[in-house]
């Protein structure tokens, strides 16, 4: 039965009693909320409106179309405060494109790994488990 899943409800006769007024109001509000806004606006909202998420984004400003510089600039120490900000921004822009700092270069790592793998292969004698099974 569907009633088994729901939490126990107070009988109507109890709710009608004077001291149960607050609880009655709360229960009524809960029922209203669970029925939701769907039914409330069902005559206004059409299925077209639900699926109408267009692919077009309208953007009234040029700053998102073109890749423009910051409009506030200072050169050769005219305004040290602005120049400091410009420097900070330049660093931020550079970091993601730059490669990460390495202690060991790629070439050395590749050489070492090759030597290591060669040594490893020598030590391990091929067993029947390492042989790749053929597909049926």
């Amino acid at each position: 039965m569907s009633n088994n899943n729901k939490k126990p409800q107070l009988p109507k006769s109890v709710l009608e009693m004077k001291f149960m007024k607050k609880t009655k109001d709360r229960i009524e509000r809960e029922i209203e909320n669970t029925q939701g806004h769907d039914s409330l606006y069902s005559n206004i909202i059409t299925s077209e409106m639900r699926s109408a998420t267009g692919n077009y984004i309208s953007e009234p400003s040029f700053i998102y179309c073109e890749d423009l510089l910051e409009g506030r600039l200072s050169f050769k120490g005219m305004n040290p405060e602005i120049e400091r900000l410009m420097e900070l921004k330049n660093q931020q822009n550079k970091q993601p494109s730059g490669e990460m700092d390495k202690d060991i270069s790629d070439e050395i790592l590749a050489k070492k790994m090759k030597a290591f793998n060669a040594r490893k292969r020598q030590n391990i004698t091929p067993s029947k488990y390492s042989v790749v099974k053929k597909k049926k």
Partner: peptide
Amino acid sequence: WPFEMAAGM
């Protein structure tokens, strides 16, 4: 030469 500018859109 040293100069400072602000360009408003």
